[in-house]
């Protein structure tokens, strides 16, 4: 694509509405990529790129993506937290893009936490 035009946006809009009947009502999972200074310096943006790529390939529209600040565990960055509806959040540490892809496939899509990359089960707290 040479330039983002109104025609491009209209096409996206038409395709979105064409697929809308397949969508579920709300989000069933939330992925939080820790994007404090420590996380960014450790590679958090690459984790976000990998997650967005996997989300795009999955075609899922019920997964929310967001970022948060420093969680106070700077030496464990890059980190992300997965929350699935009705389940406890899981915080993952020392990630690489490949590890993030595996977490997306096995935990977000499959419902099985990837224990070898997980730090703790617990709520998100950032500073």
């Amino acid at each position: 694509m040479a330039k983002l035009t109104i025609a491009d946006l209209k096409k996206i809009k038409e395709e979105y509405h064409a697929n809308q009947q397949l969508r579920e009502g709300g989000f069933t999972a939330k992925i939080t990529v820790h994007m404090g200074t420590c996380g960014i310096a450790a590679g958090a943006r690459g984790i976000m790129d990998a997650i967005l790529d996997e989300l795009n390939k999955s075609g899922r529209k019920d997964v929310a993506i967001t970022t948060s600040g420093c969680a106070g565990l700077c030496s464990k960055e890059p980190m992300l937290t997965i929350e699935r509806t009705g389940e406890a959040p899981v915080k993952y540490i020392a990630l690489t893009p490949d590890k993030a892809r595996k977490i997306f496939t096995e935990h977000v899509m499959g419902g099985n936490a990837v224990k070898e990359y997980a730090l703790v089960v617990g709520h998100e707290t950032t500073y």
């Binding site: 694509m1 040479a2 330039k3 983002l4 109104i6 491009d8 946006l9 209209k10 996206i12 809009k13 395709e15 979105y16 509405h17 967005l52 989300l55 795009n56 529209k61 993506i65």
Partner: peptide, 24 residues
């Protein structure tokens, strides 16, 4: 404004924005 009810976070929109930034 152009997308109206389509979320700006939709993967197709993010891809288009990324491609535009890389090429333009």
């Amino acid at each position: 404004r152009e997308l109206e009810s389509v979320p700006i976070t939709d993967p197709a929109v993010l891809d288009a924005v990324r491609e535009t930034l890389k090429t333009e």
